[in-house]
Design a protein around this nucleic acid. Structure first.
Lengths: 138, 138
DNA sequence: TCTTATTGTTACTATTACGGTTACATATAT
DNA sequence: ATATATGTAACCGTAATAGTAACAATAAGA
């Protein structure tokens, strides 16, 4: 993870702005200020999650697969989060210690509750709403 | 970050179990299954946050600086999180694009709301409660 | 006072993750 | 046909992380 969530969100906001017309990874890369291949890598994840689709060939590009008011930042997070290790658990604690033996499963519960709280907060904001805020600034 | 939150929590649970008596980084390291220097590094962060204190010299070690029912997992997260980049924002988006120009500040708001939701969830669980659950298993 | 145990910190290494970059086979519109 | 895109693989450089060793400073206890 790391900036992939931010970049993925950026991509979707751009696509929202051009709704209907496919946008090439080259154009998106210019807005994000990175390289088209990286954009395409993230677009692959978004497409796998059903948020975008792409058209091959000349005049092709990416477009939203669902209306932007139906896409929340939680959807983006989930699309881009492959291994779910926002807060990692340390491997191999001592099994002969009452703490070491059991802390992993107990921590896992707390961490997933915390990450779910984060996801729920993210689900409050849609791409349409976010794009509205962004474009309202200037 | 990454496993530092988990290791820091592990440390505090161990200290909870030995309340009163200082525990050496060596003993803690055996429970975590890592190296004393790493434990001491994290103990430095916990001490800076006022959660632990250490006694130098023979027979010394770390102990809780506050009662374990008053320490929540949010305190641990905050102690160990130095740069607050759980979800990073991509640098240098294109200032000539209406999206690139404004997305950072807008995303920053959403990300900090999300991280605060995660922190609030973590604040629901104290070290004392967590230790209780861990030791109840076996 | 001397010895021993322990911290706090620095420095170095190895491994991994991440973003940047190139390349290219495949597909499609014109 | 040709030009334009995607999707994907491969590789590089940098930064973060964990592991490790070393040592001065400190304090307990004989």
């Amino acid at each position: 993870m790391n900036t992939r969530f931010a970049v993925a969100t950026h991509i979707l906001v751009v696509l929202h702005g051009q709704d209907g017309k496919p946008v090439s990874s080259d154009v998106i890369a210019q807005s994000v200020n990175t390289h088209p291949a990286l954009i395409r890598r993230i677009l692959t994840q978004l497409a796998r999650a059903g948020l975008t689709e792409s058209q091959l060939g000349a005049g092709g590009g990416a477009l939203l697969a669902r209306p932007s008011p139906s896409i929340t930042l939680r959807d983006v997070y989930d699309a881009v989060d492959e291994d779910g290790d926002l807060l990692g658990i340390h491997p191999g604690p001592n099994p002969n210690c009452p703490v070491g033996r059991n802390i992993q499963q107990t921590l896992r519960v707390e961490i997933s509750a915390a990450v779910n709280a984060l996801r729920t907060q993210l689900s409050q904001k849609t791409i349409a709403a976010l794009a509205g805020e962004i474009l309202a600034i200037s």
